[in-house]
């Protein structure tokens, strides 16, 4: 059985369930309360759970993310919502230097069971300062887990295991996905450890995550009409990265395109390609290709923004390039 809902509703349900099931869970962030959540993820929560547990914060990303870390150390299970990845740069010190390091630096004495959620990505004409995709930076850091739910199941299912995790987990929700609708299966429980094949194929592996997943799936349909069966692998978890699933997809298809909204230079796609080189080089029949954002700040004008970002047609072209 399935039921129809949106990505937004799935995230909302997941948070509501967590708040209902565990009195230690609370939500904190800018405009999560009275405003109902910047993206309406927490609409009605303030009335349902009260201001203690639905906690509006000042615009103090460093302060309230750090307070989330302290609250986690003190016995709570905070969900800290940072409005967007762009603003998370103001909190980067607390995430990288405290949350990620405390367990190791204390010789295993202190874990930080904290969940940080944030919106990421471009595509809504918000211009350069509101369109970043920095999840690759976070995936660089040992000590945190990095999730990128791209499907309804993951939007609904990833929060519970993230909250159950004794260590910090950062969840990146791509802004382009919030209004997508679909059928959520009754059994939506998921792990936060593995990549998942979203479309089976045999000719080329399109490896992606987050906001690029729908584009990759659209590209796969176009390619299928032209006789190329693409396997689409959704990484889901950027750290720790499920290398085995990447290798399996490459071993099956012998060609691979990595699609990622980060910039190419030093970006996350480069890491995926490096793992293919290390572990599946002799499976390849063609060089691995990347489709990433152009090396430019994301522009405002629609046609320029579209041109700067990975798109289905660019993925199709990259795949075809592997067969020429």
């Amino acid at each position: 059985m399935t039921r129809r809902l949106s990505y937004r509703e799935a995230v909302r349900e997941a948070m509501r369930e967590a708040l209902q099931n565990d009195p230690r869970v609370f939500l904190m962030g800018e405009d999560v309360g009275c405003y109902g959540g910047t993206y309406a993820f927490s609409k009605g929560f303030l009335e349902e759970f009260g201001p203690e547990r639905i906690r509006d914060t000042p615009l103090s990303e460093l302060g309230f993310v750090g307070a989330g870390i302290g609250a986690a150390l003190g016995g709570l299970r905070p969900i800290v919502e940072v409005m967007t990845v762009n603003f998370s740069l103001l909190a980067l010190d607390q995430i990288v230097n405290t949350a990620a390091l405390y367990r190791h630096m204390s010789g295993g004495q202190f874990s930080v069971p904290l969940v940080i959620r944030m919106c990421t990505g471009a595509g809504r004409q918000l211009a350069a300062q509101h369109s970043h995709s920095f999840e690759g930076w976070y995936a660089h850091i040992p000590g945190i887990k990095v999730l990128a739910p791209a499907t309804l199941e993951d939007a609904r299912g990833m929060l519970a295991p993230a909250l159950a995790d004794p260590d910090p987990v950062v969840i990146f929700e791509h802004c382009q996905l919030f209004n997508t609708e679909g059928e959520l299966p009754d059994d939506w429980r998921v792990d936060i450890a593995s990549a998942k094949v979203r479309r089976a194929g045999k000719d080329v592996a399109i490896i992606t995550y987050g906001g690029c997943l729908p584009k990759a799936l659209a590209a796969a349909e176009t390619l299928a009409a032209q006789g190329i069966e693409a396997e689409v692998l959704d990484l889901r978890v950027l750290r720790p990265l499920d290398t085995a699933s990447i290798v399996a997809a490459v071993a099956k298809c012998h060609r691979a395109v990595v699609v990622d909204e980060n910039w190419k230079s030093g970006g996350f796609a480069a890491e995926v390609v490096a793992r293919i080189m290390e572990s599946a080089f002799f499976e390849l029949d063609a060089p691995v290709a990347r489709v990433c954002s152009e090396e430019v700040p994301i522009p405002y004008a629609k046609h320029l923004e579209d041109a700067a970002l990975p798109q289905a047609d660019k993925i199709v072209a990259a795949v075809k390039g592997l067969f020429s």
Binding site: L73, G74, L76, T98
Partner: peptide
């Protein structure tokens, strides 16, 4: 100053618990 936000959160936990 890295400890100050942390201390604030520890205070929050004590208050909420």
């Amino acid at each position: 100053a890295g400890g100050l936000p942390l201390a604030t959160g520890l205070g929050l936990a004590a208050q909420m618990l």
